[in-house]
């Protein structure tokens, strides 16, 4: 059985292919691309690319579970499931003890609280606003004239604490411009930006009332940003586990669910 999990996010489309059963011995492959406008085409390309890595093609895939913001846009899906369910499934497979999943993508952030058996107890998502998401970081990086990958590195040099007052992604850029004009240092602004994202996500985490001893796993593109993870760890006073490839965990969960469709 060859299945695919397809996570069509607002910024990036991710695919994970899993092979099970006799003759395969089990295999894993993944791929990702910017989402763009034509979601079905990009999705086919991403699945095709992941399949190509294990010498297969799109047509070899027997079941596809689509998830993410574009989940209903692909006619070739076997089934669509939400990124909440898929993320929780992926996180629990990687970390069987995890009871709190924090996933921060391009335009949304979500927190999923699970019980010891992995059952979802509650979840929260950001409301109608890109504060506390990857887009917030991207906008800030653009305004600061640095790459998104360098943003976390730069902030490590920060020596002076600045507080961002705007929680809105658009107003924050105006605030950054005014900080630049006021001769604030790039590294201090970068640190403030990460702190602002962590603040928003912290509020979301509190809203699901997590167990004090919850094992926390962070996924999504923003989990690659060590500065946001670090800020959150300080605020929560707890370690946050981040998988090697945090961006594909939801697609991985979708693939696991595709296998379970039976």
């Amino acid at each position: 059985m060859i299945v695919a999990g397809l996570d069509i996010g607002s910024t990036t489309t991710k695919a994970v292919i899993l092979g099970f059963g006799q003759g395969f011995g089990g295999f894993y492959s993944d791929s990702m691309k910017p989402t763009g406008i034509d979601m079905p085409s990009v999705s086919k390309e991403v699945i095709g690319e992941a399949a190509g890595k294990v010498r297969l093609s799109f047509n070899d895939i027997e079941r596809i579970v689509s998830t993410g913001y574009g989940r209903i846009s692909v006619p070739f899906r076997t089934r669509e499931m939400t990124e909440i369910t898929c993320n929780a499934t992926g996180v629990r497979k990687l970390y069987p003890q995890a009871t709190l999943a924090v996933d921060i993508g391009g335009q949304d952030s979500k927190v999923i609280k699970m019980d010891a058996s992995g059952r979802i107890l509650a979840f929260a998502m950001n409301d109608r606003c890109a504060a506390g998401t990857g887009q917030f970081l991207e906008g800030a990086a653009r305004t600061l004239g640095v790459s998104i990958d360098d943003l976390a590195k730069i902030s490590r040099e920060s020596k002076r604490k600045i507080t961002m007052n705007s929680t809105c992604a658009v107003f924050a850029q105006t605030e950054i411009v005014s900080l630049i004009t006021g001769r604030a240092k790039t590294e201090d602004i970068a640190a403030a930006v990460h702190e602002a994202v962590a603040n928003r996500v912290y509020g979301l985490i509190r809203s699901v009332n997590p167990e004090p001893a919850a094992q926390i796993v962070m996924t999504g593109g923003v989990a690659r940003n060590a500065a946001v993870v670090g800020s959150l760890e300080r605020m929560l006073d707890r370690e946050i586990l981040v998988p090697n490839n945090p961006q594909v965990v939801t697609a991985y969960g979708a693939a696991l669910l595709a296998e379970d469709l039976g």
Binding site: I84, R119, I120, M125, D127
Partner: peptide, 21 residues
């Protein structure tokens, strides 16, 4: 109401009630 922002929540809630992950 801007339904898209609510769709994921509603669907996830329905999945949660049905699937009991």
């Amino acid at each position: 109401v801007p339904l898209e922002s609510l769709r994921t929540r509603v669907q996830a809630f329905a999945e949660r009630l049905k699937t009991h992950l």
